[in-house]
């Protein structure tokens, strides 16, 4: 079984509004799958449907080869969810809370699992404290502890790093990366750099529709439109008119004066760096660097969410 999760043309409609529109994607076993989209794109709704909290209006969600709706009781121990607002009881201590979660899932070895999770998430200092008095960063970690406590093989984390200080964000990311050794993780975020750092596969959603889905490399390739070159010239040099350059059509030319750098985009994907350098040198221009630039995920994302909005 390669795909743990298959979402097949899932739609969620509310009166007068389509929150999720015919969404399809799949998550491979053992991967960290990034689920990317601006706020309000339908990420949380989709994740709640996958977790079995919300039935889709139409379409099917298959998890571990089983259809999620109508609710399957035995699937409940297989999914861990950290919702956008961590479901915490403010009047319980961290330990009592996690014990309660463990008991709800019929766990037997709660004390040993407690030590494991508490030390894994660096919660030692607060384990006896009341959750309501903890900082936002600690609360988020307790929420994550809840999601992983009963050892579910599939984890859904809805913007786990949202609103945390930079130090906590780094720690949490490292921890999530560590989890991926044993588990499959669906991880949502609206921050691209984050997804690029920890995910190997991504799905981009915008206005309830999937814009792209696949592994990072594929998405990069798919959205690379023609060759983009980063051209560095020696100080003082000027880029000549390139419209007469060979038989290649030059799209846009961007000039960054501060660095004597140019971004050149071409319609063609053919790598003609040697020809270009030969041409420029022939014109008596000193070339510093020529690099092929692969588009940043950020550009792809902005491109997709703007142009089709």
């Amino acid at each position: 079984m390669d795909n743990i999760l298959i979402v097949d043309s899932v739609t969620k409609e509310y009166p007068g509004r389509v929150a999720v529109d015919s969404v399809s994607f799949s998550v491979k076993k053992g991967s960290i799958h990034g689920f990317l989209g601006p706020n309000g794109a339908g990420k949380s709704t989709t994740m709640r449907m996958i977790a079995g909290l919300l039935p889709p209006t139409s379409g099917t969600i298959t998890l571990f080869g089983e259809i999620v709706f109508p609710e399957k009781r035995h699937l409940k121990n297989q999914i861990g969810l950290l919702p956008e607002n961590a479901p915490l009881y403010p009047d319980m201590t961290v330990e009592d809370y996690l014990t309660f979660v463990g008991k709800l899932h019929h766990m037997k070895n709660i004390p040993s699992r407690m030590d494991e999770v508490i030390s894994g998430l660096n919660l030692q200092d607060v384990r006896k404290r009341i959750i309501g008095n903890l900082s936002k960063g600690y609360k988020q970690r307790v929420g994550l502890a809840q999601a992983i406590f009963y050892n579910a093989p599939f984890l859904i984390l809805d913007e786990p790093t949202n609103g945390l200080d930079p130090q906590s964000v780094v720690e949490l990311r490292e921890f999530i990366k560590g989890l991926a050794k044993e588990k499959t993780i669906l991880f949502s975020s609206h921050i691209l750099s984050e997804v690029e750092q920890i995910c190997d596969h991504i799905t981009i959603i915008h206005q309830g529709k999937i814009r792209a889905s696949g592994n990072l490399g594929e998405i990069h390739r798919k959205f690379r439109q023609g060759l983009v070159l980063k051209l560095g010239l020696s100080p003082g040099e000027k880029l000549p008119d390139l419209s007469r350059f060979g038989h290649y059509e030059v799209g846009t030319t961007q000039h960054f004066t501060s660095e004597d750098q140019y971004h050149l985009s071409f319609e063609s994907e053919h790598d003609f760096r040697p020809e270009l350098v030969k041409y420029l040198v022939g014109q008596g221009i000193l070339v510093h660097t020529v690099m092929v630039e692969s588009p940043e995920l950020e550009d792809i994302f902005l491109h997709m969410t703007e142009t089709r909005a």
């Binding site: 977790a51 009781r73 035995h74 409940k76 121990n77 919702p83 479901p87 009881y89 979660v101 709800l104």
Partner: peptide
């Protein structure tokens, strides 16, 4: 109000 019912709905209770 606390969104804590989800804990139950995620469990076999």
């Amino acid at each position: 109000r606390q969104d804590t019912l989800e804990i139950f709905w995620l469990s076999p209770v």
